[in-house]
Design a binder for these strands. Structure first.
Lengths: 328, 328
DNA sequence: TTGAAAGCGCTAACAT
DNA sequence: ATGTTAGCGCTTTCAA
């Protein structure tokens, strides 16, 4: 069942059928009607595989995300999806946390013409190899970005955000502020650590002994265990800044496990402002990121880049926001 | 840059190049080597668009999910993704909650050959129209399923699970047990309500006045507001059973908002057992579903169906599990 | 406004 | 073991 059957039935050429389907050129009303009738009667559906080959487009956008089990990434993906859909694209989702196959394999989907463009939320280490191998491919960096790379990007100013958060903690009188960081392959991790340290130093403080911990994941449990480890190591602290709300929420549990109270004994500050932040006791203070908007922007930038490859590469830094609630 | 360039460079025919690429037929080592060298040197990548057209396969699996912002669905999708990837497929993710475009549009991706099969987590109302319109398309039902429909399915026994949960609550001495349900377009909602009611009746109880609430979404806030509404309506209750952990966690907040304590004044029981369940105070008692396994099974069933269309349709009911923690 | 025909890049019969 | 060739179903010149 192809366009040929329609053409035959409507008594026109395949070219005319194509014109009707795509509205790509004027067609006499009478002919158009016959074609539409034939399509209707035969229940014809264009074969996108064929169209894609012919037009050399897949209308698929690849999204590489480290872990969409994390509410933060999930929300970004939804932002991406919303503009993709609006523009007639669909999203090919690849969770790279599985780690089984490496990111290069996914990027091959671009080279193989299975996707027209990609949005990469993976660590900048990965992005670098990608950038090196994959010139002349359409992709944008999201959350993880290198200002100086020739790749469009969107994200927030991570160092400044961390600086703001820690400064707030200090202004509230905290002096022994621990830092729960995630995998430092992520640029945002390194930037937030820098912001954390800067804020400390700006106020003549140092990180407490054993007060900087790096976790291997972003689950609640990772946060909980980080605090347990700090206590086991004998660290004394009066505040914790975690680079993710999931980690922070886990940390709050960890504090309680130690028989301490939040925020009386230990204040806790998170990052992202996921919906869950208002569901814990006390509610979580955090650095808000405009997740949906980040996703939207990433998709928009990508689409722009695709439709105008020679235009200057844009870079968008969105505003973060200190959200003060009960935990700090 | 196509297979022709490789053929020319290697001094063989395109057929031989294809054979090397796909390992579909024996090729003399010497020729194979020349082909591989040419591919390497020219940095050739097969055009999947062309291959897909030729083979009439996209190696894409469509996943329709009501809301992957919900950790429950996110985890299922990861289960799906894991087996898809293992079998050389990729996942086209469609979040139907956006509701903008209707599910039929997504299903068209199947008809249009953009996807080889689909996994549908959407309400059975939608599935019914899908089933009616979309005969001879490959798809399976996940979580939402109709035992009697000629569609492979996977899920748990929702009625029995709810029955078990409520029975437990009753055995613990609770008598005024409220029920926070989600959108009843979902079959699981109706089944769990039935299970809830059955358990009550089996013990000679009734649902408390105003004790059954239907929410329009599964966010934490929906759960919180549901409890506020109950209290506003003057309902007195000593336990709450919610059809989702997100709702239940919100409900715990709602109980606290009312100045009551969990579980002393009001016990709370959830459903799903998402990671967050152990991060609230007290930790959430719930009905566990094997999310990852549900996803894996769905993908496996779909793949089976695709490779053997005439085989009998399987139906898989997985076990749920009562997980008792602090909240009930 | 329409039709004929070329061809996107690949795979798979078929022939050798 | 290898080459020739015919399409897969569509869009798009080009000519009429």
């Amino acid at each position: 069942m192809s366009i040929v059957a329609i053409a035959k039935r409507a008594g026109v050429s395949t070219a005319t059928v194509s014109r009707v389907i795509n509205g790509s050129a004027p067609v006499r009303p009478e002919a158009r009607q016959r074609v539409e009738a034939a399509i209707e009667q035969l229940g014809y559906r264009p074969n996108l595989l064929a169209r894609n080959l012919r037009t050399a487009k897949s209308r698929l956008l690849l999204t590489l995300v480290p872990d969409f089990g994390n509410p933060f990434y999930a929300e970004i993906v939804r932002g991406i999806d919303s503009v993709a859909r609006r523009e007639g694209y669909h999203v090919l989702l690849c969770d790279t946390s599985a780690g089984l196959s490496d990111e290069r394999t996914y990027f091959d989907l671009l080279r193989n013409h299975m996707a027209d463009g990609a949005i990469c939320l993976d660590p900048d280490t990965i992005q670098k190899t990608l950038a090196a191998e994959a010139t002349d491919l359409f992709w944008v960096a999201c959350c993880e970005y290198d200002q100086d790379a020739p790749v469009p990007f969107v994200g927030i100013d991570n160092a400044r955000a961390a600086f703001d958060a820690v400064s707030y903690l200090i202004e509230r009188g905290h002096r022994r502020i621990a830092f729960i960081n995630s995998d430092e392959r992520f640029l945002y991790s390194r930037q937030r650590r820098a912001g954390y340290l800067d804020a400390l130093h700006a106020h003549g403080l140092e990180a407490p002994e054993g007060g900087i911990i790096t976790t291997l994941g972003l689950t609640y449990e990772h946060g909980r265990r980080a605090v347990a480890d700090m206590h086991a190591a004998g660290s004394r602290l009066d505040a914790i800044f975690a680079v993710s709300d999931t980690l922070a929420i886990g940390a709050m549990q960890g504090v309680r496990d130690a028989g301490l109270a939040v925020p009386k004994d230990v204040a806790v500050m998170g990052f992202d402002n996921i919906p869950m932040a208002t569901m814990v006791q006390p509610e979580l203070s955090t650095v808000g990121q405009p997740m949906w908007q980040i996703g939207e922007t990433a998709a928009t930038l990508l689409l722009q880049r695709m439709s105008n490859p020679d235009a200057e590469v844009a870079g968008v830094v969105l505003e973060h926001q200190l959200v003060i609630r009960g935990s700090a």
